[in-house]
């Protein structure tokens, strides 16, 4: 579970990134975090990963009180979460297998565990046949699936996806979202920061919108209804289910 209680964050240069943010994200939820550039989304993620500490307020993640967390305890907090980056962050000199195995090696997993777990996870993201390929030989969508496999391999209870579809084309973005939804269906909490409104509209998850450091809307997930076409999706938008105003634009 993730809980933000009246969180403020002001950087040393005086820039106010978050103002009185209070959110509760329960275990097993899928949440989109949306907002324009500079709205405070990145700060929110940095606070979650304990790269930054709040100026005021408290954050609790998987039972860890982040403001009281000692430096040496931070790695253990991070082991409860998997991070997916917009730029994939794959190591080009390593094969797909080794990229995923890397995440296990650095937390001290044995070779036996690695040989068992990595093929399973690669199978889960549909890349078992690419285990020996290098990142440069893969498409953007495939590279992101490797990134997702790496985030999943240590069996985290939360996946933090920072614009995971920002660098891939729309069709493949859809695949990544379906994969994340499937992972969520299996019980993992997913927190995804995105600019891509069309994806948010297609997948009916909870949406938290941030503007100028404040949470301006928190739209709970609606029961999933099969979306058959773009026209139907548009009809859902018009019905005003999602908290976007007409003509609103986000940077891509």
């Amino acid at each position: 579970m993730i809980e933000f209680k009246g969180v403020h964050k002001t950087y040393d240069n005086g820039n106010i990134a978050l103002k009185d943010v209070s959110i509760v994200i329960n275990k097993g939820e899928f949440v989109f975090i949306v907002g324009a550039s500079g709205a405070g989304k990145s700060t929110l993620l940095k606070l979650l990963m304990r790269e930054e500490v709040p100026t005021a307020g408290e954050i609790i993640v998987n039972g860890f009180k982040l403001s009281k967390l000692k430096k040496r305890e931070i790695p253990y907090l991070r082991r409860t979460m998997g991070v997916v980056f917009q730029d994939f962050r794959l190591i080009n000199s390593m094969t797909v297998f080794d990229n995923v195995a890397f995440a296990m090696r650095v937390i001290g997993a044995s070779n036996v565990e690695i040989r068992k777990r990595v093929p399973y996870i690669l199978g889960l993201v549909g890349l078992h046949h690419k285990a020996r390929s290098y990142p440069k030989e893969l498409s953007g969508g495939e590279q992101q699936r490797v990134g997702l496999a790496r985030a999943l391999v240590n069996n985290p209870s939360i996946i933090i996806a920072d614009e995971p579809t920002g660098n891939i084309d729309p069709e493949l973005s859809h695949e990544i979202l379906e994969l994340l939804t499937e992972i969520n269906r299996r019980g993992t909490t997913v927190l995804m920061v995105t600019h891509q409104i069309d994806l948010v509209r297609r997948f009916h998850h909870r949406v938290i919108k941030i503007e100028e450091g404040c949470v301006v809307s928190d739209q709970k997930a609606v029961p999933a209804c099969p979306v058959k076409s773009n026209i139907e999706a548009a009809a859902v938008d018009i019905a005003g289910i999602f908290p976007f105003e007409e003509g609103e634009h986000y940077e891509f």
Binding site: R78, V83, I91, F102, R150, N154
Partner: peptide, 17 residues
């Protein structure tokens, strides 16, 4: 630094890095 950032994100301890 890429590897270090990944190591940190998956919870490697500073000693291990």
């Amino acid at each position: 630094r890429l590897e270090i950032s990944i190591m940190k994100s998956v919870g490697a301890t500073d000693a291990f890095i």
